[in-house]
Structure formats: C-alpha cells, structure tokens
C-alpha cells in the first residue's frame, strides 16, 4: 500500500451534487492515488463540516484507487454516520471487499 510513484500524476475528476433529499453525492472519476487524494480530501472536509447524515461516493468511473484513496473514504466514514459507495467499478469493489471494508463502506449497486 505504500505508494512511491511520485512522478506519476493521476487524473481525477471530482463533482459534488446533492440529491433531492439533500444527501451529498461526490462523483469521483479517473484514478485516485497518493498524488491527488488530497484534492478529494479537501472536498470531503468541506462536506462533512456541514454534518450531513449520510454521504454517497459515486465511483462508477473510478478505475484505480490506492490506499491513500481508501484512507479518504475511511476518514469520511469516521465523521459521517453512513458512507455509501454507489455503483463502484469492479476494480474498486474488489479492493473494498478484499480489505474487509464492505462493512464500513457499504456498497450499493
């Protein structure tokens, strides 16, 4: 999990919306790793500051996520009652399953 690839800068797109019920939905697309996880961390920090009940990450177009990315999701789960991962790509889904995090970050298809 120790990402050492400093030269590589992954491309990630982050988009925040709110559903009709006022639940924040953060769409993360591209690749999320140690080089850009701080960007998502800043977005998440501004959202959890408003103390929402739930937080949804939409990860259908996220094709790579390393431990730094997982750490951001776990950090959000620590501050919000429920964090859901919506429609994660197989790559992300398997990482969540194999690291025993499905209980912490509930996956909804």
């Amino acid at each position: 999990m120790a990402e050492l690839d400093r030269d590589h800068t992954a491309e990630v797109e982050i988009d925040t919306r709110y559903d009709p019920a006022g639940v924040p939905i953060v769409t993360v697309a591209g690749e999320l790793d140690v080089s850009n996880a701080a960007t998502l961390q800043a977005t998440v920090a501004s959202i959890v500051a408003k103390r929402p009940e739930r937080l949804i990450f939409s990860l259908g177009d996220l094709h790579y996520m390393d431990s730094a990315g997982i750490a951001v999701l776990l950090g959000a789960a620590d501050k919000v009652n429920a964090v859901h991962l919506r429609d994660p790509s197989p790559v992300v889904r398997r990482v969540i399953e194999l690291t025993g995090l499905a209980g912490v970050l509930s996956i909804e298809s």
Binding site: M1, A2, S67
Partner: peptide, 9 residues
C-alpha cells in the same frame, strides 16, 4: 502493510 509511505509509514 501500513497505508502511506515515507519515514512516518
């Protein structure tokens, strides 16, 4: 395996 890298990890 500790997340992160560097001396801290």
């Amino acid at each position: 395996d500790v997340s992160g890298h560097g001396l801290r990890a």
